[in-house]
Amino acid sequence: MDHMISVVKVRQVLMVTMPPDPDDTTVTALQEKVLGAMERYSAKGVVLDISAVETFDSFFARTVSETAQMVTLMGGRTVIAGMRPAVAVTATQIGLTLGNIETALTTERALDLAAAEPARRKVR
């Protein structure tokens, strides 16, 4: 079922799109797909498009946050894009925090964020 996740390289970033209602096997496959593609394409970061996702439960949240940590270890940034309002309300209510993963309303903004060099961010 992991073919339901699509990974496309845009600029130097991986655009990862999740299907609306992925089963646990598909969610688990996310990690391997993303890390494999990071290495293969020497990507700078990952945009995880969850705009189609209707249910974001604790298993899904844990997998996403672990994957983002691994991407960080590989020198990349992860930006989550397009969380639906009802999903955001639900995730907040049950206290699902995504750690320090960045988020963006649109995939376009997420792409800009993910492509930016973390080391070149201004520190003042």
């Binding site: 646990d24 209707e54 249910t55 974001f56 309002p85």
Partner: peptide, 15 residues
């Protein structure tokens, strides 16, 4: 929003 809440709760318990 309520549909999403109910479905999310059901997902946790089914798992």
């Amino acid at each position: 929003t309520d549909v999403t809440r109910i479905v999310t709760a059901a997902s946790e318990l089914a798992r």
